[in-house]
């Protein structure tokens, strides 16, 4: 990559890093792993930078790299999530306001609920409801069919609802 292109790449990374990192964090639930995923996604972008003609599609390309890396990473044996009887680092939720929709939220509470959603479904939820992407764009980012996105969305929402209900102060009282 020539110096001019490298400078453009640097500016792009600088401008988009935090947004990509936030998305990665929502998928993996750990800021340090989010940094790793972000770095890998940008490294892949660097390798393809000179082949990309449509710079308006850079965000979509990075998103695809990020999703692929995140889902692949979650499948590795040493990253594989395991079901445990006791959730780690469960916080005292006695002070949490019941009305989550109003925005009074304990981040750890939501993070733990998201961690209970399977990785693929979590990625769909993040793209659909955090990135605001429609079904077709989500399917493109995840390199799967739109039908798959719809089914994963439904399952992910159900899983998240169940996780939130399990972790609610009422202990399973569906809100």
């Amino acid at each position: 990559m020539g110096p001019e292109e490298e400078a453009k790449f640097s500016v792009y990374v600088t401008a988009r890093r935090d947004q990509v990192r936030r998305t990665a964090y929502l998928i993996c639930g750990d800021w340090h792993r989010a940094d790793d995923l972000t770095q890998i996604a940008f490294v892949k972008l660097y390798g393809a930078w000179e082949q990309i003609r449509d710079h308006a599609a850079l965000d979509a390309y990075v998103r695809r790299c990020l999703m692929r890396v995140a889902v692949d990473e979650s499948r590795r044996p040493w990253r594989r999530e395991r079901a445990v009887e006791v959730l780690p680092e469960v916080t005292d939720r006695s002070g949490i306001t019941a009305d989550i929709a109003t925005g009074v939220v304990d981040r750890e509470f939501v993070r733990l609920a998201m961690a209970e959603v399977p990785a693929g479904q979590r990625a769909v939820l993040v793209l659909r409801y955090y990135e605001g992407m429609d079904v077709s764009a989500t399917a493109a980012a995840l390199e799967c069919s739109e039908g798959n996105v719809k089914s994963q969305t439904a399952r992910g929402l159900a899983a998240l609802k169940a996780a939130l209900a399990r972790q609610s102060p009422a202990g399973g009282d569906s809100r």
Partner: peptide, 14 residues
């Protein structure tokens, strides 16, 4: 789902 978007945004804006 604005409420879910709000949840995720709050989680990400740590």
């Amino acid at each position: 789902r604005p409420e879910l978007t709000e949840l995720l945004t709050r989680l990400a804006d740590d």
